[in-house]
């Protein structure tokens, strides 16, 4: 069995080949990795199959990737996401 890891908010999270980021985070006991843009409420996996977009996070600097669909890869830098994930563009 292959054990590798990516980083989530700076700390390593192990995963098995073929797992999504959402699955690996769940296995590591992480439930929530996004806050909503209006009320700042926590969200995580909901539909688990790419339909609901609740599990959005930042992957290697790209916001709004679906954790349930995005395959985990060794060395990936994954971050939790606040609001739209595009705060740096605000004018």
């Amino acid at each position: 069995m292959t054990e590798q890891s990516f980083t989530f908010d700076g700390r390593p999270v192990a995963f098995r080949s073929g797992q999504s980021l959402g699955a690996a985070l769940t296995a590591a006991g992480v439930r929530s990795w996004r806050t909503t843009r209006a009320d700042g409420r926590p969200r995580g996996l909901f539909c688990g199959i790419g339909v609901c977009f609740d599990c959005l996070l930042v992957v290697d600097g790209r916001p709004n990737e679906r954790a349930c669909l995005q395959p985990a890869a060794a060395g990936m830098q994954v971050e939790s996401q606040e609001g739209t994930g595009h705060g740096h563009l605000e004018v």
Partner: peptide, 9 residues
């Protein structure tokens, strides 16, 4: 587009 902060005034 997807929801964004204010990016265009």
């Amino acid at each position: 587009t997807e929801p964004l902060p204010r990016v265009v005034r």
